[in-house]
């Protein structure tokens, strides 16, 4: 599950996930019919409009419920959260019990990346190398919807060369909240300011998380102020090895994401 944001805006998180899982010896399938889980619609209150998105998602990923694949993985806590905690609700609310049950079957085998690695595959050391000072922001939906707890931290602690710095008030929301960032842009910015203050206080050069959306928000603020801190998805760090660490891959200080400069060349 690439997620719409990962597909369109942050393909490096998707690529990182693919690369990592292949390195660990797993076969990865990218169902090309996939689009979007509908989270934006659901969380903005467009529950009726979300029904076709849920149906489409279930159609595309249903092979996992039939055992054709072992698991669906997404490099996103909030998209996984939407699939697991909202899809069946959306279907039931529309009176489609059959769709709700299909959605539950798919959701039962859908995992956020750190859950898949730690809980399902039983690995914490994925053999990654990432020689940077990093702080980790636990995104709200991974923390409080999926309860991934410290799984991402377990993974990060095992990364060679990585200096992990604890983020103060880590569990407080960064202020993204999907359309909240636009509909209540000023309150969102006030929350972002505090998150950035805490990130900057760590003196980390990289802020990581399990959701490209929250990273887009935090990174968008860090970049605007030219803070010299960049945001990198957890999947990219875990995919990283000695071989992939070239000076160019250290990334731009723009703070928005790891590789935009290279991608442009």
């Amino acid at each position: 599950m690439a997620t719409c944001l990962g597909d369109a805006m942050f393909p490096q998180a998707v690529k990182g996930t693919v690369k990592l899982l292949r390195r660990l010896g797993h076969e990865v399938v990218f169902p090309e019919g996939q689009t979007c889980c509908g989270q934006m619609h659901v969380n903005t209150g467009y529950l009726r409009e979300a029904v076709p998105l849920v149906r489409h998602h279930v159609d595309v990923f249903e092979p996992v419920a039939h055992g054709e694949w072992d698991a669906v993985v997404a490099p996103s806590g909030s998209c996984t959260g939407c699939v697991r905690h909202q899809h069946a609700m959306v279907a039931r609310r529309a009176g489609d019990e059959a769709l709700a049950e299909r959605a539950e079957a798919v959701a039962g085998r859908t995992y956020e990346l750190s859950e898949l690695l730690v809980d399902v595959l039983g690995v914490t050391d994925v053999g990654a190398y990432y020689p940077h000072r990093v702080t980790y922001h636990p995104t709200c939906h991974s923390l409080r919807m999926l309860r991934v707890a410290d799984k991402p931290l377990q993974l990060l602690r095992a990364v060679r060369g990585l200096e992990l710095v604890e983020l103060p008030d880590a569990e407080v929301c960064c202020g993204f909240g999907g359309t909240f960032a636009v509909k209540n842009g000023e309150t969102s910015t006030a929350m972002l300011a505090d998150k950035m203050r805490n990130v900057l206080g760590t003196r980390a050069e990289v802020c990581t998380a399990g959701d490209s959306s929250c990273l887009m928000h935090i990174g968008g603020g860090l970049g605007r102020l030219r803070t010299g801190v960049r945001t990198v998805h957890l999947a990219e760090i875990l995919a990283s090895t000695e071989a992939s660490q070239t000076p160019a891959a250290a990334g731009s200080a723009g703070g928005v994401r790891d590789e935009p400069a290279e991608a442009q060349r």
């Binding site: 690439a2 369109a8 805006m9 393909p11 490096q12 990218f30 842009g185 972002l192 968008g220 970049g223």
Partner: peptide, 30 residues
Amino acid sequence: SHWTDSRDVPAPPAETARQWWARTGGNDDE
């Protein structure tokens, strides 16, 4: 503008994940 009042947006990538997969089958990320 409620977003860009305080936050940048990254430039979209040259290639979406879907295009990358179609082009490479997920094999040439290096």
